[in-house]
Amino acid sequence: MPDVTDEAIAAKVQAGDGESFGLLMERYEAKLTRYARRFLLNGEDGPDVVQEVFIKAYVNIKSFNPAKRFSPWIYRIAHNEFINAIKKRQRSREMLLSFFEPDIFFPHPLAKESASGEAERASLRAELEKNLNKIGPKYREPLVLYYFEELDYREIADVLRIPAATVGVRLKRGREALKKIMPTSPLV
C-alpha cells in the first residue's frame, strides 16, 4: 500500500485494525534503527529500544491526531526511549537538565534551512557519519534528524520539544563542533 499515507494507516490502527500496525513498522523500522544506531552510537541495546518504541507507539496510538504528521509523533516516542536508554547506560544527568538549557530560554533569529543539492548533502552525511561519535548528544540528535532522517526544523522542534529557532542554533553549533574536529569539513 505505497500510496496510503502513514496518517491513514494510523487511523485504521486506531479504529481497531491492529494488523495495519505492521505496515507502519515496515515503513519506520529501518529509519528508527538507523536513528538509534546514530544517536545511541551503535549501542547493543538499539534493537531492543526500537522494539520498545513500536510497543509504546501501538499502546499510545489513540493519542495521535491523524490530522497531523505521523513521523514527528513516532520520532518523539523514539527520542524519549533513546534518552532513557542513554540515562540507563551512562547514568548521565545531562538530559535531565535540558529544560533549563539557555538556548531554549531566549529568542534567536530563525536560521534559514539550507537548500543544498543532493550530492552536497550526501557528502555532508558521509562526513557526519564518520564523526558523529565525537559530537555530544545535544548537538548530535538534531544533526541526525536533519541530515539523515530529513525532518525539517518544525518537525525536529516537535520531536525535541524545543523552539524551531533553537533547532537552527543547535544545528549550527553541531556543524561548528564538526568543523573543529575536521577543519576541512564543508559543513560550515
Binding site: M25, T33, P47, Q51, Y58
Partner: peptide
C-alpha cells in the same frame, strides 16, 4: 533484527 522486531510486536498484538 528487522524480522524479529516486527514479528515480536505483531505477535504481542495478535
Amino acid at each position: 533484527p528487522k524480522q524479529t522486531i516486527q514479528a515480536k510486536v505483531l505477535e504481542e498484538i495478535k
